[in-house]
């Protein structure tokens, strides 16, 4: 019974926590854009415009829900649902800290440490395509259909290098569990580097982050919603909370991707060179490891904003060319090199 209670607390707590980061992220994005473009940004609602996400939420809730007469009703309604549920659920296997001991009971700071964590992430990540294509097709608007098609082709194209880049990590650590991989990143590598995944898979990391940006439809891969060409892509016809779910799902995706990047490539909750866990008590270490993990995640979240307001958008043929001619051969090469390296050092 105790296990169930802990599980419920973790599920609800982390679900809300991820959502909260995503909410704050919408504010960070707008303020960050303003900072980079040297303008004030949203500054009316609350101090520094901090209540802006709240105001946006209220507005989305109180807007009229429209189903266009030409839309295919079922697909139109089910689209945002199919997009947001997988996006909200993907964080379930990503850790958010080491472990905490409460009342003699060891609780790992991860919603669920299943032995197929990788496959869960890949499977859930692929589900988002359905929401995009069904929403775009169901809207029965040419901009939506074009956006949906573009998005689907892009997402499936970059899923291959994403999967292959993660494969490199599986080769190195020999497990699908994100917690085991995090634990294996303690200490130093070659005597002077932190024992992080990025130093063992440098090429894999670059491939992963590029593919992840494309999967999340972020600049420079935001062609599905290229405003200057196809209005706003697959969610042109959407309004109210249905639009909110699409936009919000993307921010939750960013949190998940940042969490995966930190857990796999940037040492998870480990500090470089210092093993803080050996000096701190079981409870304080739990809190500190959570904070370290969150700080690293924040950096990658900020990088999404940074990149968005720094790089221009690709052309569509460049996106597909980069995916199939650049990333996939490089990812295959990375697997080959990784396998060779392990074979020579084992």
């Amino acid at each position: 019974m105790d296990d169930w209670l802990i599980a419920i607390i973790k599920v609800v707590g982390i679900w809300v926590w991820v959502l909260l980061i995503a909410v704050v992220m919408t504010w960070v994005e707008r303020r960050g854009a303003a900072l980079i473009q040297d303008r004030p940004g949203p500054n009316r609602a609350g101090p520094w415009g901090l209540f802006q996400p709240l105001a946006d939420g209220i507005k989305l809730f109180t807007k009229e829900e429209i189903i266009p007469t030409k839309a295919q009703k079922l697909l139109y309604i089910i689209g945002p649902l199919l997009f947001s549920v997988p996006a909200f659920s993907a964080y379930a296997v990503v850790p958010f800290g080491d472990k905490i001991v409460l009342g003699g009971k060891e609780i790992i700071l991860q919603v669920s440490d299943v032995n197929i964590g990788f496959l869960y992430i890949l499977a859930i990540g692929s589900m988002a395509v359905y929401g995009v294509i069904l929403g775009g097709w169901g809207s029965n608007n040419k901009y939506s259909i074009l956006g949906g098609l573009r998005s689907t082709a892009q997402m499936v194209s970059y899923e291959v290098p994403l999967g292959l880049a993660l494969l490199g990590i599986v080769f190195v650590y020999g497990t699908f569990s994100l917690r085991d991989i995090s634990l294996a990143q303690q200490g130093t590598f070659l005597g002077f580097l932190p024992n992080w995944g990025i130093f063992k898979q440098p090429l894999g990391f670059i491939l992963f982050i590029v593919a992840a940006y494309a999967e999340a439809n972020r600049v420079p891969f935001d062609l599905p919603e290229a405003e200057s060409e196809i209005v706003s892509g697959y969610h042109t016809e959407y309004g109210s909370m249905r639009l909110g779910l699409y936009l919000f799902g993307e921010y939750v995706n960013l949190v998940t991707i940042s969490g995966i990047i930190v857990a796999l490539y940037f040492g998870s909750w480990h500090m470089p060179y210092i093993d803080l866990g050996a000096y701190l008590g079981p409870i304080s270490w739990g809190i500190v490891s959570f904070c370290i993990f969150f700080l690293k995640v924040s950096f990658f979240l900020w990088m999404f904003v940074w990149v968005r307001w720094t790089l221009p958008r690709f052309r569509y043929d460049q996106v597909m060319g980069l995916g199939w001619r650049g990333l996939i051969p490089l990812a295959l090469f990375n697997i080959f090199i990784t396998a060779l390296f392990i074979q020579l050092t084992v």
Binding site: A7, V85, V111, V114, S240, M241, R242, G244
Partner: peptide
């Protein structure tokens, strides 16, 4: 561990439906 994942999925579905329902009622 899979029960927890099912709970997490259930939570996502529940909240999404609540959000859509809320917009339906409030709008």
């Amino acid at each position: 561990g899979f029960e927890t994942i099912v709970m997490y999925l259930g939570m996502s579905l529940l909240v999404v439906i609540l959000m859509l329902g809320g917009a339906y009622i409030l709008g």
